[in-house]
Simulated scan of single mutants.
Amino acid sequence: MTGSAERLIWTAEDAREWIAVPTADDDKYSRGVLGVITGSHDYPGAAVLGVEAAARTGVGMVRYTGPRAVGGIVLARRPEIVTQSGRVQAWLIGSGMNAGRRTFVLGGEIQQALAQGVPTVLDAGALDLAPDATGPTVITPHARELAELLSPRSTEATLDAIRADAATWAARAADEFAVTVLLKGSTTHVASPGSPSYAVTDAPGWLATAGTGDVLAGILGALLATNTERIARDPALALPALAATASFLHSRAADLASGGGPITALDVAEHVPAAIAALLRD
């Protein structure tokens, strides 16, 4: 890692250390099971993209337990996804959801997931639940979402202020909510209480397109599920490292998908295996 003590640049060498490569003794359970509660009537594609990315990042199994109608769409794309409840090693919650339209039943299911205390990614429509999480948690806002999250606690947390000093505001949010913050942008900033802050740079401009945040959340959820033992040993080290690694893989997959031209979110998800293979080779 290079850079100042406040902002370390996350590199390929750093990211390589956090890829869990299966051995001959592994099975689908030991490789990690990711539980997913994402998508909605309005945004079913968010669930498809997150599940697609998670499955391609190396997780052993994905359990999708979000809205049933969305689950049918997810299964049509990825028939290996399990839609029955069961034990998971990590959760991905909130992509494609709206906190203001959360039903009583869905809210109860999410609270049950949060109460399990396993590593959790909170995205989009679940960002407001950061104070309710009982396990190691990463939230994945963009600047506007972070402003909405922090504005009730600080009048200074405006969109312009966050855009002007993203690294500082990511660190402030991490301390405020006692979680790891992955603040998305052309440079992604990762902050965690008591840990160094990381920056992931050089994301292609073509990555700024609908659905790529859902892909990033899926990559991160899979990395948490495949690294639960390391998280348990040292969450202060592991969570920000895994968040930065997810962003790094996201950018590299986008580079491979683009080849210098436009891309879609699904293109990025489909190139995650090649990004991982290239990282391990190098």
Rank of each mutant, 00 (worst) to 15 (best):
T2S: 09
L8D: 04
I9V: 14
I9S: 05
A20Y: 10
V21F: 13
D25C: 02
D26H: 13
S30A: 08
V33I: 15
G35M: 02
G39A: 12
G39K: 01
G39E: 07
G45F: 14
A47N: 00
A47Y: 02
G50M: 08
V51M: 05
R56N: 06
R56D: 01
G60N: 11
R63G: 03
A69L: 10
G71F: 07
G72P: 04
G72R: 09
V74E: 02
V74K: 01
A76Q: 10
Q84C: 06
G86L: 11
R87P: 03
A90W: 10
G94S: 07
M97A: 05
M97N: 00
F104S: 08
F104W: 08
I110D: 01
Q112W: 04
L114P: 00
G117Y: 15
G117S: 09
P119N: 06
T120P: 01
T120V: 13
V121H: 04
D123Q: 08
A126K: 01
A130Y: 11
T134L: 09
T134A: 05
V138A: 06
I139F: 08
I139Q: 01
T140V: 09
L159N: 05
D160F: 11
D160R: 10
D165I: 08
A166T: 11
W169H: 01
R172L: 12
R172C: 04
G185M: 02
T188W: 15
T188F: 14
H189N: 11
H189A: 07
P193Y: 05
A199S: 03
A199N: 00
D202P: 03
A203R: 12
A203Q: 11
W206A: 10
T209N: 02
G211H: 07
G211A: 13
L216G: 04
G218E: 09
I219F: 14
L220S: 04
L220P: 01
A222Y: 04
L223A: 04
A225S: 15
A225I: 05
A232P: 05
L237C: 06
A241Y: 06
L242K: 01
T245P: 07
A246P: 09
H250Y: 13
S251D: 14
A254E: 02
D255A: 10
L256W: 00
S258P: 07
G259T: 09
P262Q: 14
A265E: 00
D267Y: 06
V268T: 14
V268E: 02
E270R: 15
A275F: 05
A275T: 09
A277S: 15
A278E: 15
L279D: 10
D282E: 11
